[in-house]
Measured scan of single mutants.
Amino acid sequence: TYYTVKSGDTLNKIAAQYGVSVANLRSWNGISGDLIFVGQKLIVKKG
């Protein structure tokens, strides 16, 4: 599943929405910090 980042989104918010961990979101998307951008597509695997 792909999720497109919207204004106001955070990794924590997206992780909670999908029932996954922030660590997994980072791993699946090659993100090291907490910086995400509006319009960015993130890979999300269902929890």
Rank of each mutant, 00 (worst) to 15 (best):
L35R: 11
L11R: 00
V22T: 10
K46A: 15
A16E: 12
Y18E: 07
V5C: 05
L25I: 10
G8L: 05
L11Q: 02
S27H: 15
G39C: 05
G39T: 04
G19A: 10
I14W: 01
T10M: 05
F37Q: 09
V44W: 03
K41F: 09
K13A: 15
T10C: 04
V38I: 14
A16G: 09
Y3I: 08
G19H: 11
L25R: 00
L35E: 15
Q40G: 04
G8T: 06
K46G: 15
I36E: 03
V5P: 02
L11V: 07
V38M: 08
A15M: 03
I14D: 00
A16Q: 12
Y2H: 10
S27Y: 14
D34S: 09
L11M: 08
Y3H: 10
D9V: 02
T10F: 04
L35T: 12
V38T: 09
K45Q: 14
N24W: 11
G33F: 07
A16T: 12
N12D: 14
A15S: 10
L42H: 00
V20A: 07
I31E: 03
Q40P: 01
A16K: 13
W28R: 02
V20G: 03
K46M: 15
V22C: 06
K45G: 13
G19T: 07
A23T: 11
R26M: 13
Y18V: 09
N12T: 11
L11D: 01
S7W: 10
I36W: 03
D9A: 02
G30K: 11
S7A: 14
G39V: 01
G30L: 10
S27K: 14
G39N: 07
I36V: 09
G33E: 10
V5W: 05
N29R: 00
L42T: 01
L42Q: 00
G33S: 09
V22K: 07
W28L: 06
A16V: 11
A23C: 13
I14L: 07
L11F: 05
Y2E: 10
V5T: 05
N29A: 02
G30N: 13
I31Y: 03
S21W: 04
Y18H: 12
T10Y: 04
G8F: 06
L11S: 01
A23D: 14
N29G: 01
N24M: 13
Q17C: 08
S7E: 15
L42I: 11
N29P: 00
Y2S: 08
N24V: 12
G47Q: 13
Q40R: 05
V20I: 12
Y18N: 08
L42M: 09
D34G: 07
Y3R: 03
V22H: 04
G39A: 04
K45I: 13
K46L: 15
N24K: 10
Q40Y: 04
V22S: 08
S27A: 12
S32Q: 14
K45S: 15
T1C: 06
N29W: 01
T4I: 11
K13Y: 12
I31T: 05
L35Y: 15
N29C: 01
T1A: 10
K46P: 15
D9L: 01
A23Y: 07
T4E: 11
I31Q: 04
K13V: 10
L42E: 00
I14F: 02
D34H: 10
V5Y: 02
D9C: 02
N29E: 00
N29M: 01
